[in-house]
Amino acid sequence: EALLLQRRRVTVRKADAGGLGISIKGGRENKMPILISKIFKGLAADQTEALFVGDAILSVNGEDLSSATHDEAVQVLKKTGKEVVLEVKYMKD
Rank of each mutant, 00 (worst) to 15 (best):
G26P: 00
A45R: 04
A50M: 12
D64E: 07
S23C: 13
D55I: 01
E1N: 07
G21W: 05
D16V: 12
L3P: 09
L58P: 02
L35R: 07
F40W: 10
V12N: 02
I57R: 02
G18Q: 15
G26I: 01
D93Y: 09
F40M: 13
D71H: 11
G26F: 02
I22H: 01
Y90M: 13
R7F: 07
R9K: 14
K89L: 11
D93M: 10
L58T: 05
D71S: 14
D16F: 08
L65F: 06
L65P: 02
L58Q: 06
G62T: 05
G26K: 02
D93A: 09
R8M: 02
H70W: 11
L58D: 04
E1W: 06
L35V: 13
R8P: 01
L4D: 14
Y90N: 10
A68E: 03
I57D: 01
A17V: 14
I36N: 00
G21Q: 01
G26S: 01
G26E: 03
I39T: 04
G54A: 02
R9E: 07
Q47R: 14
T11N: 08
A15Q: 15
S66E: 10
E72P: 01
F40E: 12
E1D: 06
S59T: 09
D71Y: 13
E49S: 11
E49A: 15
D93L: 08
V12L: 10
G27V: 03
R9Y: 14
I57C: 02
A45C: 10
E87D: 11
F52V: 09
I34G: 02
A68S: 11
I39L: 08
V12Y: 05
H70N: 12
A50P: 07
E87R: 03
E63Q: 13
N61F: 02
V76I: 15
A2W: 08
T69I: 01
A15G: 10
L5F: 07
Y90E: 07
D71C: 08
G21K: 04
V74G: 05
T48N: 07
D46Q: 07
G21L: 03
D46K: 04
D64T: 07
T48S: 11
A56R: 07
L65G: 00
V12K: 03
I39W: 05
L4Y: 15
D55K: 03
I24G: 01
G27P: 02
V53A: 07
A50T: 08
L3A: 08
L51H: 02
H70K: 09
E63Y: 11
L65S: 02
G62C: 05
S23E: 12
S37W: 06
G62R: 05
E63W: 13
V12E: 00
D46R: 04
S66L: 09
V60M: 05
V53G: 00
E1S: 09
R8S: 02
R7E: 09
R13F: 13
S23L: 13
L51F: 06
T48V: 05
L58H: 04
E49C: 14
I22S: 00
R9S: 13
L4I: 12
A68L: 11
S59P: 02
V60S: 03
V53Q: 06
V84I: 14
T11F: 07
F52R: 12
R13M: 13
V88N: 01
D46W: 13
V10L: 05
G62Y: 04
